[in-house]
Design a protein around this nucleic acid. Structure first.
Lengths: 107, 107
DNA sequence: TCGTTAATTGACGAAATGATCAAAAAGAGA
DNA sequence: TCTCTTTTTGATCATTTCGTCAATTAACGA
């Protein structure tokens, strides 16, 4: 694994890292089919505006969402529709993990 | 977003989080079509054995890979083939991000 | 221009993560 | 049993991340 390969992996893993937080993943799901302002997102996730704003900037820097101004509001939208497809796959992984845990207990 | 929803998101985001590190993403790609022992993975990623072992345990706990013993060796395999499909989508995001950066410079 | 609304930024402390070293398991074979 | 090989685990420290507060920016209308 040379330097070039490591840089390539860094670029890609940043996308996963950005989605690797419950609030940020919640935002991605929330935006899957519509544009929303920061205030809507704050209402939805239920934490402080400044916290949400920082999570949004992480998603934006990763290229997962984009924004535009509309008067006083900033509207955010998903720029990565394929993320939603991948969720099905991730759900499968989560269910598999739960099965493993069940097996540990039931034997 | 109630407690139940937050727990659901936590379970899912853990999968992304596990892939959100260059070494771990490199392992996922390396295992995409074959089983490998820890020693092979160490050779491939080029860092210490104990470091690799800890990254493997994170991927395993997330349900992304699984292991089996074969004599002295522990063989790891991918349990999430859909991860490889999703890579294409992530590559698109990375390229989009690079375009944005280029636009910043060229104006 | 002033006040209001919407959002971002900076500073800070607590908590989590990552790399490295040494020590410990766990199986294979003499 | 003793030793070698392969891998995991524990301790430690530096770095990063996360959430909260206060301050700031930006646009709108009166």
């Amino acid at each position: 694994m040379d330097t070039r390969e490591r840089e390539r992996l860094k670029l890609k893993s940043d996308v996963f890292k950005a989605m690797g937080h419950p609030i940020r993943l919640g935002v991605v799901e929330f935006l899957h089919d519509r544009e929303m302002c920061v205030c809507d997102i704050v209402d939805h996730v239920g934490t402080g505006m400044s916290n949400v704003s920082k999570h949004l900037s992480i998603l934006k820097k990763a290229g997962i969402i984009a924004d535009r101004r509309d008067g006083l509001k900033i509207m955010y939208r998903l720029t990565m529709p394929c993320a939603v497809d991948f969720m099905k796959c991730v759900e499968g992984v989560v269910l598999g993990r739960l099965d493993d845990q069940r097996a540990l207990i039931t034997g």
